[in-house]
Amino acid sequence: MTFLGRLAFNLIAWALVLVIAFPLAWMVVTALKPQSELFRRPPGFLPEAPTLDHFRRLLEETPFATYFGNSVILATATTAVVIALATLGAYSLVRFRYRGRESLAFLVLFTYLLPSVVLILPLYLMMVRLGLANTLASLVIAYTTFALPYALWLLRSFMAGVPEDLESAALVDGASRLGAFRDVILPQLVPGIISTALFTFILSWNEYLYALVLVNSDAARPLTTGVMSMLISAFNIEWSLLMAASVMMSLPLIVVFAFLQGYLTRGFGAGAVKG
């Protein structure tokens, strides 16, 4: 390609990329603009007097901090439970032979595609009966319905990528099955586990429907429903506040993107595309 051709291509490509990225850039810009600039016509792109005031108000005047804390606990707990279960389960599915193993793998794939709205009605009844409605625990339980099949599916694919000879070698060298798992397989699986954990965390962090149905108190509300309830309860919608909340809500993601993006792509390859 000639230099001009390359220049043209790069300009067009970057224009496209910027169009895609614009809504999120606008979110950040809005969150930093003082109220006075928000409704100015014509709107300026960069804030003239950037302010963190909206963030301060968010933390001081709204239950945002509680929601944030809830989301952290919720996503962490779900990830921990699901990763622990799924790692052992994936090991079993990939490296053991017993009757029903294939049907089980099939069931995992099936549930991975199952719509949440089907499960939510019985789960709601279940939580009410168990007296767990309006607790974070009910959400952890509900989140396993999508996170566990997902994690199992990903980890199964990662597990299959660990050479079987490594386990065989460990067995011959004197390890038991579980010993070989701990000494040899688990260390090889670490990148896959990290990647699966990131996905599980993000899924749980972003979940909305279960949180909407199962939790109806500010004490146990995670960010997704919490921030939406701020929108609904406010008399006039405070967009700067909502955009500040959106930025804060995306914070863990930004961290992941900045430092751990390789794990995301890896997880994608393992779970989504290879099937």
Partner: peptide, 19 residues
């Protein structure tokens, strides 16, 4: 189990523990 057979094995892939 392999551990109690007192055999050693060299694999085609070598199967060295990478970590």
């Amino acid at each position: 189990p392999p551990a109690r057979r007192d055999v050693a094995m060299v694999f085609q892939s070598y199967a060295l523990y990478p970590h």
